[in-house]
Amino acid sequence: MGENHTIGIPRGLMAYREGVLWKNFFENLGYPCVFSPKSDRRILGQGTARAVDETCLPFKMYLGHVMELKGKCDVIFIPRMGGFTTREKMCTRYEALPDLVRNIFRDEHMEVLSVSYDWYDRTTEEKVYLELGMSLGSTRKEAKKAYNAARKKQETWRKAKEKGQQQLLETGKTKVLLSGHPYVIHDAYMGGEITGILEKMGAKVLYSDYVEQGSAMKRSYEFSRVMPWLINREIAGATMLMRKKVDGIVLVSAYPCGPDALVNDMLIRRINGIPVLSLTLDAQSGTAGVETRIESFIDIIKYQKAGGYGNQN
């Protein structure tokens, strides 16, 4: 890869969690980055056309984003993430991501740039990024500097989100926590729809991934000692921490997410005392079903606050 080569980052999956780190790391090394645009129906459609039927909605969306970057960059960054510890592993989708993409688009000759790590390698994030930087021709020192600065940016971004959300907690409005994978709840086409409907009904929306990450992880070990998925740990921990601070919780899952199917069921039984709505998103075009469910949910919260029917007007 030569100088001035542009790196494309698909706006999907873990980009919603670590995109700031990736972008800044590459830019610090002198490579401009470009993100694919926000999700819409067309992007999902083109991704679905290339994916096997049984895979999950966010992965189909991700493929659409990869296609969106064609011709707009020289190489696409697709990390392979296995997790760093045995109890904080990743879903198989992220473990196989670069291989899946290479294979699906094998006739289109897409250049893929990747990092790769696994919990059994006993490696660290810093180490894998230093290796990536050096493989791109930087010295160890340059790569380390680029990584450290990017990591700092990522932290600053997180802290800002966490702080913003903390302030939202103090408003008197109806507060609803949207719990789910960041690439579902922040995706314009998936979670964005739900946020839109909730806000239209006068609720303030909070997100599980904007809860202080360290405390959420700690809380997740009280929830389950053995649960192996990192992101579900963050979701479960954050939800348990927030359950007494919000008026309702919407658990959002994208069909057919295996870890969510197990963990959300357990979560519903552990969250006591406040209304919980469990939504499973599929590639349906109409929002009527979701709207009815959210409207009923908001009604439950509002009438409960009002102390009965007939007290609202």
Binding site: P275, T280, D282, R293, S296, D299, I300, Y303, Q304, G307
Partner: peptide
């Protein structure tokens, strides 16, 4: 509970 809905569920797909 106390004359107000506190929880509900609907069939899915």
């Amino acid at each position: 509970e106390n004359g107000v809905a506190v929880d509900y569920a609907m069939n899915t797909l």
